[in-house]
């Protein structure tokens, strides 16, 4: 009662002191962040602007100037006419190759890794930890050491140079991080659920499909984001384990841009580069915090 009776004025102001809007600290903080943000945006801006200009305008003006005359021709050309060697059917081929590579790779790698994580979290068998430790160690081993043995293995099973060979490679190299991700997630689920299902007589696959899977949609989305961007951006495996007519978009982009013959058409090249970066960028902007969670999950808990 006494508390209510006492006039508030005697207590002094409550809560944190209101910050002045233009304090010196604020100016430094926001100033720095804005400058940094502009620096980070600059390359993207340059690419967008240049890809909308015609070649004469690029030769005359500077790359930071907005286009005087907007043209979408470079985009059309990059998509359907740009040349790699003798092929002049544009980047669309690389795009569809990347789709054909990414979709099965993402599905297979996540299917394997989620079952791995589930087995490691709930059905521990002897030796499981040893394999898991080797797997995590494998994430740090430079790929270069394993490149050639994998060539031999794929050749032995007749998949070297084929789409499915590359799918296997992506599944192998995605396994350490994804398995870790799923194992940590399944371990964090309440064990009672699993035990109750066991008591009710559910088996390994039944529990996985009917209980674990429906409960872990968020982590599947995180894994998908991780894998789609990772596999889409891959260059090294694409170049080694596929044939030229199956080259993913990144490889084809590099071949288009860094080919020595002919005049450099910067507008077409930048449009092509933007097209290649579009898929991961869209995923990044749409997924927002989940993307951050994906990369942090791998790093912080690793």
């Amino acid at each position: 009662m006494a508390d209510i009776a006492r006039p508030a004025a005697l207590e002094g102001p409550q809560g944190p002191r209101p910050r002045k809007r233009f304090s010196r600290t604020n100016i430094i903080v926001y100033g720095t962040l804005i400058v940094v943000a502009l620096y980070y945006l600059l390359p993207l801006y340059v690419m967008v602007v240049t890809s909308l200009k015609g070649m004469p305008e690029i030769r005359m003006g500077n790359i930071f100037a907005p286009p005087v005359e907007i043209t979408f021709e470079p985009w059309v050309k990059a998509w359907s006419q740009a040349c790699t060697g003798l092929n002049c059917d544009g980047l669309s081929r690389g795009f569809w190759n990347s789709v054909r590579i990414t979709v099965p790779s993402v599905i297979v790698s996540i299917a394997i890794a989620s079952v791995n994580g589930y087995a490691l979290a709930n059905w521990r068998f002897r030796g499981a930890d040893v394999f898991f430790t080797i797997l995590i160690f494998g994430a740090f081993i430079p790929y270069q050491v394993m490149l050639y043995p994998i060539v031999i293995m794929l050749r032995e099973i007749g998949l070297y140079g084929s789409l499915w060979g590359l799918v296997i490679v992506h599944s192998i190299f995605g396994m350490p991080i994804l398995t870790l991700l799923f194992r940590n997630y399944f371990t964090s689920l309440p064990q009672e659920l699993f035990k109750a299902a066991r008591v009710d007589g559910a088996g390994f696959w039944q529990i996985y499909f009917q209980i674990m899977l429906p409960m872990s949609l968020p982590i599947f989305v995180v894994a998908m984001i991780l894998q789609v961007t990772g596999i889409w951006n891959d260059f090294l495996f694409g170049v080694i384990y596929t044939k030229p007519d199956l080259y993913p978009m990144t490889v084809q982009l590099n071949n288009i841009v860094n080919s020595v013959q002919g005049v450099k058409e910067y507008n077409v090249n930048m449009a092509a580069t933007l097209l290649t970066g579009l898929v991961p960028l869209v995923i990044y902007f749409v997924s927002g915090k989940l993307f951050v969670r994906g990369i942090a999950a791998g790093a912080v808990k690793g």
Partner: peptide
Amino acid sequence: RTIILYPFALSFIV
């Protein structure tokens, strides 16, 4: 954060 992290989503090729 979105602006400073976006290059990380891009490939090394880009």
